[in-house]
Design a protein around this nucleic acid. Sequence first.
DNA 1: TTAAACCTGCGAGCTACTCACAGGTCAAGC
DNA 2: GCTTGACCTGTGAGTAGCTCGCAGGTTTAA
Lengths: 144, 144
Amino acid sequence: MKVAELARLESVSADTIRHYVRVGLLVPEKDGSGYHTFNRHDVSRLRFILHARDLGFTLEDIRLILDEAGKGKSPCPVVRELIEPRLCEARKRLADMQALVERMESAVTLWSSLPDCEPCGDHICHLIEGDSEQLFDKGGACCE
Amino acid sequence: MKVAELARLESVSADTIRHYVRVGLLVPEKDGSGYHTFNRHDVSRLRFILHARDLGFTLEDIRLILDEAGKGKSPCPVVRELIEPRLCEARKRLADMQALVERMESAVTLWSSLPDCEPCGDHICHLIEGDSEQLFDKGGACCE
DNA sequence: TTAAACCTGCGAGCTACTCACAGGTCAAGC
DNA sequence: GCTTGACCTGTGAGTAGCTCGCAGGTTTAA
């Protein structure tokens, strides 16, 4: 099986698979023409990688897990250990994204009642510059 | 004012400022020693960049906005136009993050009641491989 | 035996920094 | 005047996880 076929089979891009090959997560053989050929074992390995990725593991994490299993050991302890910091990071990023979306929505709402401005001096755009202070300072309305 | 002083003043890293210089968002003069020197105008420009960044604009967006203002035009229409797709993307990423965190939390909960496994054949780790199907397929149990 | 369609691996590029590094600047001390 | 050391500089390269571009190879139909 070549890259494109595997990609179709697992619903990922051929580039993604090539990337995994490049970083050593997948190690397919090469046929006479220098093309990568994937066997049954490679397919389940890819499937594993995609599952792990969708659980928030980094490719480096996945490499560690695969290494552990490759040594014949149980990878479960590593898996349990690695997901903790990933979960913390994910929660942090989620909170950041939530705050960002709220800031953006407040901005859009606020701006809808503001006219366009002309730049003058060091002033560039009052939408972003001046009034956005209301969006950042959570201390309540300052001038209304 | 040199890089480090400006960095302290605006509470960003010197590397961040150097990055903005490198990509052309900041265009400070050079003194006799080849060091960048920032004037009052550069400071307010940086402040603007940071505000815009915190509203979810990309550096490329910010460049467009600054270009528009630099031509003497009002950047507001561009700003209003650019924030729409950014807000959509941010909402999308927020939803993705929310789903990811939920998957991770479900996984951790589920795994706490599962024992460690040994790898055998194409099977690598049942935590990620087998049981995680419950986390992905919302359609209910398929074979139990 | 071409022609066209499809596929390949590999290099480079993407965002927004961050780090490493060789070397420059400058005040304090002798 | 000279040296030591702290601090600072710009530039090149590296980060994650792909994604794109490209020159060229393979395969299939006419």
